[in-house]
Simulated scan of single mutants.
Amino acid sequence: MLLSILIPTYNRDEFLEKNLYMLEEFIIDNDLVNDIKIIVSNNCSNDNTKSISNLFLKRNKINIDIYHQEDNLGLEKNVLFVLDKAESEYVMTLGDDDYINENYLVETVCKLKANRKIYCVIPSTQTITTDGDILNSGRDLNVNSKIYNKGFNNCLKNSWRGHQISGLIFKRNMILSTYNKNKVNNIYPQIYFVAYNCLKGKTWHFTDYPVKVTEALQEDKDWGYNEDGLISEIFDNYKKLVNITSFQRSKLELKMLDVQTFRYQMYLSKGLSHYLKALKNIEFGNNTSLLTRLGFPFLAFKYLSKSALIKFLRLILGNKYEKTKNKFKSFIN
């Protein structure tokens, strides 16, 4: 088997049902039955996930295994559970309420068959509502597809993109045993998997067909962001990554903090005091490296200054702000 699609799920029966039937159609229509297997782990849901998935299983049209947990394993262990059940050369992680494009699946399978030196595939993403409406947000929507050679530069450029679980593909060999051996323990194991494979082999940043990522309400999630946006959880991956220097580890941490500006927006939206408290938690977090502690205050100040400037310009320009901003962008481009 070339590829296993891993779907850890919890209390999203309608989304899971839509996803399974969509994937079944893609697999059958493109003659991929012998190439792809789906593995689902129902994390002790209390909705109709069990009955819906069992009904789908009875169709017996594609390769699929469905497991029902008697107790909730937690987010991380449920991801590790489906990974442990896989036996294919590659695995794809997919959120139960996120949807891959048919062409993304087909072209990825063809590419992996032709080039086994690719260890990781990372998609672009398009955010949608729970009703499927397109939102004006996403990641790498205007970025060209590119293949990166193995090594630290690949890891630096791409490991932060592992924050979004859906559509990520990586070689399965050794990643779970290495993860356990190095005692990695956080709710973002896919960041470790991406970083590990970027160091081991080539990465294909395949942006032509964005994965549709559902923007779920926080109350619908079985986890929270804590006061630091779970940065400590993310940094645990870099702390446990082997064969990198302390300087490289810090570069990975600062890259994450620099590109994910939504975190600062999230902190500021709750007030300046919350912003400062979040920064303190990041600065002195157990998984924050020494060099990051030295560099992070400059990043935080840069964003705060930029945010204050934008508020000032909005106040001065009023309704003309967006028009002026667009003119400026056209000028510099």
Rank of each mutant, 00 (worst) to 15 (best):
S4K: 08
I5C: 07
L6V: 06
N11S: 13
F15E: 08
E25G: 04
F26I: 11
D31W: 07
D35Q: 13
I36A: 06
K37E: 02
I39R: 06
N42E: 06
D47Y: 10
K50V: 05
K50N: 01
S51W: 01
F56S: 00
K61T: 08
D71G: 09
N72M: 15
L73V: 12
G74D: 09
L75C: 10
L94K: 00
D98S: 08
E102D: 12
E107R: 09
T108M: 03
C110R: 11
L112R: 03
K117H: 03
I134V: 14
L135S: 07
L141N: 09
L141T: 08
S145I: 07
I147Y: 01
Y148P: 04
N149C: 11
K150G: 01
N153A: 11
N158F: 00
W160P: 06
R161G: 04
G162F: 03
I165R: 05
L168V: 00
Q190C: 12
Y192V: 04
F193I: 12
N197I: 14
L199W: 04
K202E: 02
T203Q: 03
F206A: 02
P210M: 05
T214E: 12
T214P: 02
Q218T: 14
E219K: 14
D220N: 15
K221S: 12
F247S: 14
F262Q: 08
M266W: 00
K270D: 03
N281I: 10
G285W: 10
N287Y: 12
F296M: 10
L299Q: 09
F301L: 15
Y303E: 03
I310P: 07
I310K: 06
K311F: 08
F312R: 07
L313W: 06
G318S: 13
N319F: 13
T324W: 04
